[in-house]
Design a protein around this nucleic acid. Structure first.
Lengths: 204, 204
DNA sequence: TGGCAATTTGACCAACTGGTCAAACCCACG
DNA sequence: CGTGGGTTTGACCAGTTGGTCAAATTGCCA
């Protein structure tokens, strides 16, 4: 049995898989798919290039594995948006979770951003199916809250876009943020976004 | 006299320079710096690769030329923010101009985004000098408005970041936006951002 | 029109890079 | 032990790509 079957079996396979994916995340998120080289990934994972290709069929296979693992984590905070919770609190929690993810997983955020920026050649379908379905579902929830007068009126889809844009911005455009703020300011970002969305969404 | 001197002189040099930069913008914004090839740029500009290299010393020289030309245009809307104007109107105008730039110049926006995402290897210095100075200056103006009670209180630096994040998002993450909204919706985006910033900034 | 500089290009090269392969190595288990 | 599968790697290959160069072509102006 070769290691290229669907799921890793042995202990060592699981370990090497994880090691490779972590190294690849470093390299892909820094240099992009085209800029990344198998040699760089192999070096970061402290193994030879043929050894790396023993565990993954190709450069693209590594990239795809990373992205599919990523999408689930990425959708998770939105999934937990609770239709029976307090509207403003639910959205503020979502904003905060997204910001925490940007702070704690900047490599993942940048990998995702690079993929989208290039036209999502490896996950366009997932965006148009899974992501869209989830966003539509949650947009309906938000619209319901608005119709009940529990949130100030806004287009729910664009509201979700505003949340994504602003939270991910702090990870993806980190260099620009640091250039302007002088240094990272996650506490300031959190306070700012909380105030922004509170003023924006509190019904009058 | 060779064409690699600082400024193009002859009519044909100016024409070819512009032709190359336009082609390069297509390719760089679509494939990124590493993904772009001189062959692709030359093909798009309908000339041979050596001919292209007759006008620009290297691939990087083309990229740098694009970026430096870009930064000026990018800063322009913020420069025109008028300290003697009406605070809310000035900021809403700025938001609108930025959104129009994202709509009308998506290639430029994506080129910029790619550069920042990769850590700004070709324009980090410009960010830390020109950009930072301008942002600090305008942040002071905004803070003045807030101190006068003419705008609701927010951190001016983070406010500017919010504007950048949300306007550029519609260009840079276009594929994701289309996947979620079904299609581009610039009118909806404009209305949404206007409402968002109005509610956020109107003093209570 | 002649001649010189500007422009253009086919042919080429060296470095890089994704991927292959056969041989070597390790290691659990009989 | 030893043996057979899983694991590791040095050497290698072919395609791509940034860049060079000498020669050919074009365009301008005296």
């Amino acid at each position: 049995m070769t290691a290229k079957d669907n799921k890793p079996q042995t202990r060592i396979q699981r370990k090497k898989h994880a090691l490779i994916l972590d190294a690849a995340l470093d390299v892909f998120s820094t240099d992009g798919f085209r800029g990344a080289t198998l040699d760089a990934i192999a070096a970061r994972a402290e193994m030879s290039k043929p050894n790396l290709l023993y565990y993954f069929a190709s450069k693209e296979a590594i990239h795809t594995a990373l992205l599919s693992r990523l999408l689930a984590n990425w959708l998770d905070p939105l999934i937990t948006l609770n239709p029976s919770g307090d509207p403003l609190q639910e959205i503020l929690s979502y904003v905060q979770r997204k910001l925490e993810m940007a702070r704690d997983y900047p490599r993942e955020s940048r990998l995702f951003a690079g993929e989208i920026l290039r036209g999502a050649p490896h996950m366009g379908d997932a965006l148009r199916s899974d992501l869209r379905r989830l966003v539509d579902e949650k947009a309906t929830v938000i619209q319901g809250w608005i119709d009940q007068g529990r949130l100030a009126p806004h287009d729910p889809h664009h509201l979700i876009m505003s949340i994504w844009a602003q939270t991910q911005h702090y990870a993806d455009f980190d260099i620009q943020v640091r250039a302007v703020l002088g240094d990272a300011d996650w506490a300031g970002a959190e306070a700012h976004l909380k105030q922004l969305f509170t003023r924006m969404l509190t019904p009058t």
